[in-house]
Amino acid sequence: MPHIDVELERLKTKLLEMWDLVEYQLQSGREAMLNADQELAKLIVKRDKKVNQYDLKIDRMCENFFALFTPVAVDLRMVLAVLKINANLERIGDTAEGIARFVQKLDSPVDSQLLELTQVLPMYEEALAMFAECRVAFISNDPKLAKALIKRDKMLNKIYRKSDAVATKFMQENPNKISEALAILSIIKKLERVGDQVTNIAEEIIFYREAKFVKHKQDKKKKKD
């Protein structure tokens, strides 16, 4: 294998390790939320430092790669994509940490009616599924799968948009559970961001494979409408 490919493989491997860790963090966040598991929440917060270390390491590896290999064409796009995916993974890691911090405020498992009404669980499942499939799209160099993921973000947005009204109603009816409802509302907001970040990563995969910019295309469409 040419030296440049060996280095690119190392970079990809490191990114995928980070990806696994962030996915684990996000899954753990779900478990912690469901069970109001303080210990697990604490662990998630602690493990975010490890995510940050990966972020720094990958940034440094990219910097070195630019300096030593002056990549062009597909190699250049690959490293640019890795840089941006890295930044998004780090943010998703922060999200998992943020969810854990909200869990730390919960005294008992979340009210099942609140879970049901807000649809936070299906939203969480979808965000996790999108995140996992995005990883598949990256590994298998599959821009089609990446494009399909971008469309799936709509479901998360839909739940997010309804959440304010749903939570308000719940709080009015259950004034003793306001802080719990606020925590779930914050988690929903964070999950909506995860959807956006997965979208960003999917856009980078398309850029890397097809040399096309797809980001901000939606904005242009909206303006035309």
Binding site: P2, P71, V72
Partner: peptide
């Protein structure tokens, strides 16, 4: 040419492969 060459031979050449 240096960001998104169309021909695979160009890509292989400029990326040193």
């Amino acid at each position: 040419m240096f960001t998104s060459p169309k021909d695979e031979r160009t890509q292989n050449y400029i990326t040193g492969r």
